[in-house]
Design a protein around this nucleic acid. Structure first.
Length: 416
DNA sequence: TCTGGGGTCCTAGGACCC
DNA sequence: TCTGGGGTCCTAGGACCC
């Protein structure tokens, strides 16, 4: 084989928990969990004692009584994650960040400056340890998917380079759950039919997989298992949707509750859209009932929204529809708003001068213009004085949300 | 005292157009 | 009077990832 294992996948180990241990030396060597009611991330010391992500706090404490719970240091996660990405960027501009703590690199063109991929991987691990103080695992291989699997195998705090001549040897015995896109449901399906390893998935007939998973998905997962997915490292990456959700204790869908929660969510979503210079035409709401089943309702508007009040009104209408379709459901446990079909907000602004129909959903209307202008004033005040300085019901919402807003933006299940 | 919050991608049916 | 095939957009739901 001539191909080099020039794709790297770099993945910080137990990121949130490692940051906490970095910030507070008293936590080092101890089982640490980040989160409130549930474990959002935990240290390897905690994992060894049976704690894992998404576990309710009471169960985690049951399994590991000496577990130390910390609420999380959101700003630090963002800051340190960014610093690590900066280090990665010194080896190639071809860095594709896929979450706060994880990225692909194509170092195929970096050899002359920085040496072969293995050497770069070693340097990355050493520099992140020395300059940031965090452990990071790296996988190196010929393809992205294989590099990602390699970094998972390398954890914790390791490096795995997959020799292009020995890819099958490496891949075949690994559990099928390591394939990207095989989750609990599909994994259980496959295992029930005797497909337990990646090798078995790669060798399964396309017809059989199509019957099991559907044609498209069967083909895709088999290609991943067979390591025949050549997708390139794609730097940058634009958001396709912006959303927010809020889980709460079982509550009747009273007008007060809906106004409060949807107002808060619309404020968050629209604010983030404006901060990114975006607006979106499709608004989707999700309503979760007491039994954790949820339904969604969406609408695609003629023009993109970025104004808080307009988004809130549209969302209220959609939630009302969803509730009307489920008249027997008396209890809610979650509401969510998401905006997709995004466009650059400059296009919205251009339309401001155009027409004057007074439907606030139309960006050209005076109402829409006034709303957007008011929102921007609020945005500016918040930029200077912080989120709490002004805005919708942040005080009234109080403890209901349970998780600090900043944290929500960063939260992820398996970060540690 | 059973479950965060942020996303992506895919499927499938229906409306509508040519 | 009955009809095809293709394409796009919209909507609802589900699995998955971090």
């Amino acid at each position: 084989m001539t191909a080099r294992p020039s794709i790297l996948h770099a993945d910080l180990d137990a990121f949130y928990a490692s940051v906490e241990q970095l910030l507070d030396p008293a936590l080092r060597g101890r089982p640490v969990a980040v989160g409130g009611g549930v474990v959002l991330a935990c240290s390897y010391e905690a994992k060894r004692r049976g704690v894992s992500g998404a576990m309710p706090a009471w169960r985690a404490r049951e399994r590991c009584p000496e577990l130390v719970f910390v609420r999380g240091s959101f700003g630090e996660y963002r800051r340190l994650g960014d610093r690590v990405m900066e280090i990665l960027g010194t080896y190639t501009p071809a860095v594709q960040r896929i979450s706060i703590d994880e990225a692909f690199l194509d170092v195929g063109g970096s050899e002359r400056l920085h040496g072969p991929p293995e050497h770069i991987a070693l340097q990355i691990r050493r520099r992140v340890r020395e300059e940031v103080g965090l452990p990071i695992s790296v996988g190196a291989a010929r393809t992205k998917h294989l590099a990602k699997i390699a970094s998972q195998v390398a954890k914790p705090d390791g490096l795995v380079v997959v020799d292009p001549a020995r890819e099958r040897e490496f891949l075949d015995p690994l559990p099928v759950r390591l394939v990207w896109g095989v989750g609990p449901v599909t994994g259980a399906d496959l295992e029930a039919r005797g497909i337990r390893t990646i090798g078995e998935l790669a060798r399964a007939s396309p017809e059989r997989l199509a019957g099991l998973l559907g044609a498209e998905r069967g083909t895709r997962l088999r290609a991943l298992a067979a390591n025949e997915d050549p997708r390139p490292v794609r730097p940058g990456g634009r958001a396709g949707s912006v959303g927010a959700q809020s889980a709460f204790r079982r509550s009747a869908p009273t007008p007060d509750l809906l106004a409060e929660v949807l107002g808060h969510l619309a404020d968050r979503v629209a604010g983030r859209l404006r901060a990114k210079g975006l607006a979106g035409r499709t608004v989707t709401v999700r309503v979760r009932f007491a039994d954790l089943r949820s339904v969604t309702r969406s609408i695609t508007l003629a023009d993109p929204v970025a104004a808080t009040l307009t988004l809130r009104e549209v969302a209220e209408g959609l939630v009302a529809e969803a509730l009307a379709d489920h008249p027997r459901e008396r209890t809610l446990t979650l509401l969510a708003i998401s905006v997709s079909a995004l466009t650059a907000e400059t296009e919205v602004q251009l339309e401001l001068a155009v027409d004057a129909a007074d439907d606030p959903r139309r960006p050209g209307s005076r109402t829409a213009a006034a709303r957007l202008a008011a929102d921007r004033s609020v945005d500016r005040v918040r930029e200077r004085f912080g989120r709490g300085a002004i805005g919708f019901a942040t005080v009234a919402l109080g403890e209901r949300a349970g998780v600090p807003d900043d944290f929500r933006e960063l939260a992820e299940r398996d970060g540690g």
